[in-house]
């Protein structure tokens, strides 16, 4: 049975002439223990999609099912890591995780809750920063707190809404590695939204492109049959990786051209930093730069 299922989900915003259909007839099935990355252009409705799964918004048509039960609102069974961390600035690292743990595990005794908080802070290597407030942390550290908070609720599914897009490339690489490691430990079902093809390949079992909105639908999926743990440096020389990457990049560029979503985005000057050795294929390097610009 499908663990998470989206059936003919449509969502639009606004009324009358202002009405824009963001998602149209989205169908998706995710199995238990699977890591799925949804990749798409900005403005294609990625955040709408994850908000629907999270239950923060309701679909106009269709339904979102978790273990066959319809999702009607947000809940701690779906731990979400927001794009901009959403930490409470008046609480320390410990406080931010504790506020979730205390709410979700109300019936636990205090010692057990305390241990749960500490365990997940340790997992994201933030024990030294236990008593710091978010304003004293770097972007990467804040996002780790956010990950710890989501995981400490012991959710059935982990939702990641462009979790690393606000970080610099180096931090992004480290965190990808860490998230992959944490995920491997208990293989929790995860859905990640991203605009970075490499990030998808490193983390996910399956990559589903979201065609550019309005009326966004999902494109054909790409399976990532790469062994874990996946090391970014080793992958650069891996043929499966290179082919897969090329395929996805080409597909994204094609749908970008089709809808024109890529064109306007190409003109944006973007900080295109990726600490990565692209020497094996010059063509791929050019392609990659194009697609990243197009996607972002």
């Amino acid at each position: 049975m499908a663990f998470l299922e989206l059936r003919n989900v449509s969502k639009s915003y606004g009324e009358g002439a202002e009405r824009t259909e963001v998602l149209k007839d989205v169908n998706m099935t995710i199995c238990e223990g699977e890591f799925v990355a949804v990749i798409g252009f900005s403005g294609s409705g990625k955040t709408t999609l994850i908000s629907l799964i999270c239950g923060l918004i309701q679909p106009d048509e269709g339904e979102v099912l978790l273990r066959g039960k319809k999702i009607t609102g947000p809940g701690p069974d779906r731990g979400i890591v927001f794009q901009n961390y959403s930490l409470l600035p008046w609480l320390t690292v410990e406080g931010n995780v504790a506020v979730a743990v205390n709410q979700v595990f109300k019936d636990w005794d205090p010692q057990r809750r305390h241990d749960q908080v500490r365990k997940y802070i340790e997992m994201v290597n933030l024990t030294p920063a236990l008593h710091k407030r978010p304003s004293e942390l770097s972007g990467g550290m804040r996002q780790r707190v956010s990950v710890a908070r989501a995981l400490a609720m012991n959710p059935e599914i982990l939702l990641l809404d462009e979790p690393l897009s606000a970080l610099d490339a180096l931090t992004r690489g480290t965190l990808q590695y860490e998230i992959e490691k944490i995920w491997r430990e208990d293989r929790k079902t995860a859905v990640m939204i991203t605009n970075d093809v490499d990030e998808g390949i490193i983390l996910a079992d399956r990559i589903i492109p979201l065609k550019p909105g309005p009326r966004a639908t999902l494109g054909p999926e790409f399976r990532v049959n790469l062994p874990r743990p996946r090391d970014k440096n080793e992958l650069n020389d891996n043929d499966i990786y290179k082919h897969l990457r090329n395929d996805i990049v080409r597909y994204m560029l094609d749908i970008g051209k089709e809808t024109g979503a890529g064109k306007s985005a190409l003109e944006l000057a973007l900080p295109d930093l990726q600490p990565k050795d692209l020497r094996p294929s010059q063509r791929e390097a050019v392609l990659s730069r194009e697609v990243r610009a197009a996607i972002e």
């Binding site: 947000p74 809940g75 779906r78 979400i80 927001f82 959403s86």
Partner: peptide, 9 residues
């Protein structure tokens, strides 16, 4: 922040 409160119910 409100979304966090909603997710935590």
């Amino acid at each position: 922040y409100i979304n966090v409160a909603r997710v935590l119910r």
